[in-house]
Design a binder for these strands. Structure first.
Lengths: 367, 367
DNA sequence: GGTAACATTGACACCGGTGACATTTGTTTC
DNA sequence: GAAACAAATGTCACCGGTGTCAATGTTACC
């Protein structure tokens, strides 16, 4: 029972003091320093910082204390070089909405901060013909621990294939499950579209237009499908001339907004597939001297900053971007290629936020 | 003259072919592979990839070709470990405006992409009491090549002192020169404030309110000072009850906007120290059922996305964030502790963008 | 022809860790 | 009390480069 004494002549606290004295010049301690002070081999220290179970409890405690006292930090480069990995997480994005990207970043960093990993950002252009090569090089050269992908790059199968080939853990954020569960965070945009539809239907709208998002984004399809499904439940459908093709930019919303106004029999409401386009529609109305929501109810999607900056403030389906980032990062760290159960959530569902950009239609019994 | 032949029996192209054949299993080549194929020592290869002048021209060309052919990429970890540095650039921010941050990031990456360096992002909270320690650890542990600091962390002298102490190159982005020229990118916000003032004065405004930005941001002071200076040139001054203290957030603009409306004798124009607050003021007007710019002219600052999303679109002084990021990164790479001349620009000047949120005041002869 | 000066290259330890495997010590089993 | 085993720790080469300094071959100059 009482063992411990074998070598615990070593007084870790004293060792720490000794270091403080002998190191007036402020050299950063290395693993070797720790090992010498503790009277053990580097390997044992290595085991301690890597939480190996093969270490005596007393030794572990002592070394941990020593490490703390002298402020030792393992060098990620050296660690990475020896173990052929790195302590970097990549974020590959090509999303046009800055607010989305920043929120995702914050969410990821919420998790990374506790881990000692760092986030390397990598915006890219999916249309560039060097896109795949660039991404591969990035991942390979940096030996990334893992990568988080946002729409629309997250939807690129060729990229996913590369990740697999390189054996790099990755999490894809997308609006449907494109991959094995452990590799996905799904933002259920379809539900968001449905909610938006219900909202407008309940208000009494029947003549409803739809502005679709950029074709290369799967969310564009999901949001639309959800919306049409939702309307269908109320026996409403969107006629072809009420379906407009946008690209998720404010400018497209602006242009399409005025197109809507010019229609022979304009709708009483529009669902724009994101806030930026919804903001564009609102602006088109203003430019035309009309007053939303009286002239036209507008529903957006995302609830990023823009939604509350415009007037009237947007009714919109919220995409909890920061939370999505957090989930993605958490999942990355419990990433598991052995196929064990994963614990965390992996789906977010948009919540409809009702604000001022929607109201009952005029004709259908507005007050 | 004709030497070259000494050892150039080595056929680099053949060596490359040989590699392709013997490496069916797709191992990543290392410097050693290159060296062996080229029939030289690792050190010589090292010299080639580091552009050392101590290499024979023919040898250099040959090795460069070989490197390209077999797709060799030096390992940044190994390189960094040996030379006690890294190929990472840090971006430390605490700016509340996502659009600013993303644009700065893009600007930096525009430059980094050509270099092989990667960008590690590090938002922080200047008010946290571990802020300085966290930053120090980040820089020290990652051995950052350099760091770019944005307002307001860029204005923290204690942080700058740490950077110097760690011998880490850094660039501070701020609205005045707080440091040696080679360490600064100055965004001349004062001029922006002045331009805004001239604009309003020329329109005929005399009763002008001012919403100041967050006190902890130097830009807040500069924008205000510039604005007041500009007005002074027209013999106008801002009375104390027209000066309101905001914090650069939309919400503060919203709240202060309604305060302005409640004033006994309201101004005919407001200068909000950034677009977010200006957007808040516009919204306050809308909420109160008033119509800008007739009711009140509003000038913002920054010209980020928000400026064009709101209605009326903001007249504002543009902060070229992406360009600022670019300049900062360029400067970082020509950073020079020897005090040689620096070539690049290190100041940006805001440009006033006139849009729809300003017009002549009613009383003073509006049409 | 001898040698100094240069241009070019190489040898080798080392950066700070980890992996694979060996060793030591204490405990159990029979 | 020897064998067998488990727990705890150590040894040593190696990850893929760079720094330092020495070695080599050439050319220049007297």
């Amino acid at each position: 029972m009482v063992r411990a004494r074998r070598k615990s002549e070593v007084d870790y606290a004293a060792a720490a003091r000794q270091w403080a004295e002998n190191n007036k010049d402020g050299r950063k301690p290395t693993m070797r320093d720790v090992a010498e002070l503790a009277g053990v081999s580097k390997k044992t220290v290595s085991r301690v910082i890597n939480d190996s179970p093969l270490v005596n409890e007393a030794t572990r405690k002592g070394i941990q204390g020593l490490i703390k006292d002298i402020g030792y930090r393992p060098d990620p480069q050296a660690r990475g070089l020896a173990s052929r990995r790195s302590y970097l997480v990549g974020l590959i994005t090509d999303n046009p909405t800055p607010q989305y990207v920043v929120n995702i970043q914050h969410g990821i960093l919420d998790v990374l901060r506790k881990t000692g990993y760092e986030l390397v950002v990598h915006p890219c252009d999916r249309k560039s013909d060097t896109f795949l090569d660039d991404a591969r090089r990035f991942i390979e050269v940096q030996k990334l621990y893992g990568v988080i992908l946002t729409p629309s790059v997250s939807e690129d199968e060729r990229l996913a294939e590369i990740m697999r080939e390189l054996g790099c853990a990755y999490i894809r954020i997308a609006s449907i499950a494109l991959d094995m569960e452990r590799r996905m965070i799904v933002t259920n945009d379809r539900v968001g579209g449905r909610e938006a539809a219900h909202h407008l239907a309940k208000l009494g709208h029947t003549r409803i237009a739809l502005i679709a998002g950029r074709r290369s984004f799967r969310s564009s399809y999901e949001r639309r499908a959800g919306f049409e499904e939702g309307l269908a439940e109320h026996g409403i459908s969107v006629p072809p001339n009420y379906v407009l093709q946008g690209d998720y930019t404010f400018e497209s919303g602006l242009a399409l907004g005025s197109e809507i106004l010019d229609l022979d029999s304009p709708p009483t409401a529009v669902f724009a597939s994101n806030d930026e386009m919804a903001a564009g529609v609102l602006q088109a109305l203003h430019v035309a001297g009309q007053t939303p929501p009286d002239a036209l109810s507008v529903v957006g999607f995302d609830d990023f900053e823009t939604a509350t900056r415009v007037w009237p403030r947007l009714t919109t389906a919220r995409t909890p971007a920061r939370r999505i980032g957090r989930l993605a990062a958490e999942r990355l760290f419990e990433f598991d290629d052995e196929g064990n159960e994963l614990t965390g959530e992996n789906e977010t569902v948009p919540e409809l936020i009702e604000r001022d950009s929607t109201r009952r239609p005029r004709k259908a019994g507005s007050k």
